[in-house]
């Protein structure tokens, strides 16, 4: 009984062929859409950047949920917390650098 239970649990905790294939299909779709946008010049400027980054962020979420099993983590969710911490620092560094350099008169 105990063996069956733990088998069941470990299978649940590490996804199935279905969830991996679903994640793979989502990733392909989220890669093909931005390629199509760029290839056909559908969008320009800010709309282009927002769509491309949006697709990339969605694909990040797909990989985290379907491939890296962030969804099944039990509390306390230290993996999720450290990820959020990392992403906050990442945003501060990237967005902060971009913001500051907008006012760089030397580089123009």
């Amino acid at each position: 009984m105990a063996g069956f239970e733990s088998d069941h649990r470990s299978e649940e905790a590490h996804g199935s062929v279905r969830s991996y294939t679903l994640g793979f299909v989502f990733s392909i779709v989220l890669t093909v859409i931005p390629i199509a946008i760029v290839r056909n010049d559908w969008l320009e400027g800010t709309a282009n950047a927002v769509m491309l980054m949006g697709a990339a962020v969605l694909q990040l979420i797909v990989q985290l949920l379907f491939f890296m099993h962030l969804r099944e983590e039990k509390s306390p969710r230290y993996n999720l917390l450290s990820l959020i911490f990392g992403l906050v620092i990442l945003l501060v560094v990237v967005a902060g650098s971009m913001w500051i350099m907008m006012f760089n008169q030397v580089a123009g």
């Binding site: 010049d41 282009n48 491309l52």
Partner: peptide
């Protein structure tokens, strides 16, 4: 793979568009 998605988007896709 996740890092590459962002390299692909920020460097290549945004670079050529």
């Amino acid at each position: 793979d996740v890092v590459w998605i962002f390299v692909f988007t920020v460097v290549y896709l945004m670079g050529v568009s």
